[in-house]
Design a protein around this nucleic acid. Structure first.
Length: 113
RNA sequence: CGAGUCGGUUGUGCGGUUGCGGGCAAAGAAAUUUGCGUGAGGAAAGUCCGAGCAUCACAGGGCAACGAUGCCUGCUAACGGCAGGUGGAGGCGACUUUAAGGAAAGUGAACAGAAAUAUACCGCAGAAAUUUUUUUCUGUAAGGUUGGAAUGGCGAGGUAAGAGCUCACCGUGGCGGCGGUAACGCCGCCAGCCAGUUAAACCCCAUCGGAUGCAAGAUUGGGGCGGCGGCUGAUUUAAAUAUCGGGGCGGCCCGUCCGCCGCCGUCCGUCAAUAUCGCUUGAACCUGCGGGCGACCGCAGGUCUAGAUAGAUAACCGCACCAGACAGAACUCGGCUUACAGACCGAUCUCGGAUU
RNA sequence: GCUUCCGUAGUUAAAUGGAUAUAACAGCCCCCUCCUAAGGGGCCGUUGUGGGUUCGAUUCCCGCCGGGAGUA
């Protein structure tokens, strides 16, 4: 599944206001159903200086690229890593997949009901 | 052999699979795909200086205010930077370090202390008065007290007691000579000492500075249909008028695609913190030769070396080693400052020890 | 990215280069009271940090660290 990048501030704000949330030890996901699949990563200075922030983004993006296929529908998603410390690729991958599965199931339930 | 001083270079490497930004080429109606090659630093950081570039202001000169700089000579596009020197400070030494103009234009400087540019509290000495105690006057600044700082230090002479009052040496200041581009140094003579310290206190002098910053700034303002008006050329007409054309691309002929400008109405769109440019070839880098103690400069040859815009270097696996620090370009350069695990090289540098 | 301001008890502020850095509130301890409140007394500071100038620095100068604000 291809996806575009979330860029605009308004998009981010919409998700922070109305989006649903999925949690895991290192990552929080905000998501909402959308026509086109889109993803963005939100970081602050609390995550560290430029080197740390860039590395976080790279790791998350790589993990995301590998596992988008798990998702069954199109969403717009904001990834929020928790502040403090680096996240290893393996952890990021595992947590993202579990989050995606939960998103799938919750979406299924809403459709059924 | 040990201990040091100074300077420089580098800052994981190799291979495989899957991915990302820019460029070029090819394919495609387009989205895109494929191939080739390329893709963070010595500090990219802090934003502390200096420039380029852009917009605005003034467009000649002077003064004032404000700010910065402040030994000398050089280097540089420029600098508050750098190099070489001078003086001061530190070190046995190699060497390091230094905001280092003016206190004879003026003002200020707590407390303590007798007194902080001006003096006499205790002293010391002499004279007078008196009752022996003591008081007054005069001289003096050696000693005492305070303080961060008290009118140069030490010795001798001198004196009622003392004092640069006098003398030698040192220090300080002035003049002259010599050396040096200069800061300054050396030598000689003179002055008995005047002119305390503080200017990262106000201040004075000299030099420099218009302001704002790439979020600067420049360009673009859509498309369809209808109506009205207008410019110009050709043809037509006596004229009004009517008809056709006006541009771009391909060398011409010719062919193909579109159909000048303004206003109004209407429909789509309501984008834009967008798009395009600025945006990477530059006071560039590498090599060689030459000049200079050096900073740096000249000449010749060669190279093209990120340009993103929520912002590109990653993920996984294997191997190697003393196990990988600080850290990510955002308009561009020259510096400064700060952070940094290690590894390597040089001087023919210094001190100490041993041996010969 | 660029520009700019600020940093003093736990909090909010003050202090001309000059004594042990000053107030209010909060906290803790003591006194007063049968107990509490009120009242009285006391405690609590690396003046963000490291240097420099000065006899002397919260104040002046320089370098770091942290925080805030503005910016088509």
């Amino acid at each position: 599944m291809r996806y575009t990048r979330l860029k605009k501030n308004t998009d981010f704000r919409k998700l922070f206001k109305r989006g649903k949330r999925v949690f895991s030890p290192h990552i929080t996901l905000l998501y909402a159903p959308a026509r086109v699949h889109a993803m963005g990563i939100a970081l602050t200075k609390k995550h560290g200086k430029a080197v740390k922030r860039n590395r976080l983004k790279r790791v998350i993006r790589a993990a995301y690229d590998r596992n988008v296929e798990v998702l069954e529908d199109a969403y717009s998603v904001v990834v929020l890593p928790k502040a403090g410390g680096e996240i290893k690729f393996a952890d990021a991958e595992r947590e993202l997949v579990s989050c995606f599965r939960r998103m799938n199931s919750s979406c299924q339930r809403s459709k059924d009901s």
